[in-house]
Write a protein that binds this DNA or RNA. Structure first.
Lengths: 226, 226
DNA sequence: TTTTTCATGTGACTTTGTTCACAATATTAT
DNA sequence: ATAATATTGTGAACAAAGTCACATGAAAAA
């Protein structure tokens, strides 16, 4: 926990921009800011959810225990909400969130958050937009996952990291091969094979977890055709 | 289009229950009720979205064109909203909705719907709850799809139809084998083989599209272990 | 009714991806 | 630094599911 001023926070959600000065005071006395180190659990599947989590800085994976393995559902980059879904659906967290790097999270009391939705139409609207975009993303992901083969999915994942998360063709992949396989729905061995194949074909350059995309065109092609 | 009174409608969304008499008047003059026959397209992917669709009666599939095939994302039973996602995210429908049986849909002007969200906190809150539940469903589905094998997925689908859609162990499966494969992410042949295998093992009884679940216990077991 | 079209079932074969085993690196803890 | 632990790469055997081909059956159109 840390002294802070929400009103002057430079990293504010679209929804929060619609809050009044009085709302900010309420927010400030009902929100805490917490730092997480890489690997620390922010939200735990099965735990009671009493807060909405807003990711202020850092990178987080959203994951869920499946019948066989852990499944990584999403990589979220700040700024973004993490646990709205859980707050309004069920009382228990239906998924976990774990920091992939040093991360700052603001926990906002669910009741306060709900109050803002009730009394501030713009706030509610922004939250709805975020939820809708999430769902569209889930739909697209679902289509890819069930129709593309592993090379296509690996290509898609690399492109997503490059374009959406790091905005750079060279980046340090924030997941282990095993986690990457949990995300794509395959095995660590298959990921390994595909990556070395891409590397042999000079599509990417590999140095451990550091990846450079050398031939983006071809990677896009592999991603699209599946 | 049909003369109707929204206020007295027996099939009302949770959100709509929070509307005032004046709101109902606005709603009535900005909503139309349309009947669809089996196979007719209610929402078309790529078309401009100017309405929120509320499914008043019937059964609908939500589907999306993928890189290889059509993907069926969801089967929706009335009463439920169909196109909220599209209204608030992007201007174009990101998916299609097609009637699986005779179906009644109320189309509500998006702007009116947005207005309700702005000025009615309870309405907004109910919509948010629905969106959150959708996302949790998507997450669970995604986990199943990437971790279960085909028999497990078929079992899950049959149980879902029986428990969530028809509330009966005997039902007429509303999709062709081909559509079922688009939903699960496999091929018509594989579906066929799994179904005859279930039938041989006396887990289900098959007569064309009519399916009876004979051994629910075992089906649950197959679904859970993958 | 008859024809045409679409949906389904099934066998043989091919492809893709998994599993298992083990070696080689990294990383972390002592 | 050194040991212990986790991560990664790779080959070989195996299993699951996809593809292709064709026969049968059911529904829609002529």
């Amino acid at each position: 926990m840390k002294k802070h001023s929400c009103k002057d926070c430079l990293i504010m959600s679209e929804a929060a921009k619609s809050l009044s000065p009085e709302d900010f005071e309420i927010l400030e006395s009902n929100a805490v800011q917490v730092l997480f180190k890489k690997g620390e659990v922010i939200l735990k599947q099965g735990a009671i959810s009493t807060n909405v989590a807003f990711l202020k800085s850092g990178l987080v994976k959203i994951h869920m225990q499946g019948p066989v393995n852990e499944k990584i559902l999403r990589i979220i980059k700040a700024p973004s909400y993490l646990g709205i879904t859980t707050t309004f659906g069920v009382k228990l967290n239906q998924f976990s969130a774990t920091a992939l790097e040093a991360t700052t999270v603001c926990f906002i009391d669910s009741n306060i958050f709900r109050e803002f939705i009730y009394k501030n139409g713009k706030f509610a609207h922004e939250i709805i937009i975020e939820l809708c975009n999430n769902e569209l993303y889930d739909y697209q992901k679902s289509v890819s996952l069930s129709q593309k083969q592993i090379p296509g999915l690996v290509a898609e994942t690399l492109l997503c990291m490059s374009d959406k998360i790091f905005n750079n063709d060279k980046f340090c992949f924030p997941l282990t091969r095993n986690e990457m396989s949990d995300m794509i729905g395959t095995t660590r061995e298959s990921i390994s094979r595909v990556l070395t194949e891409f590397s042999n074909d000079k599509i990417i350059e590999l140095h451990g977890s550091e990846i450079s995309i050398l031939n983006k065109e071809l990677l896009i092609q592999i991603s699209e055709k599946g």
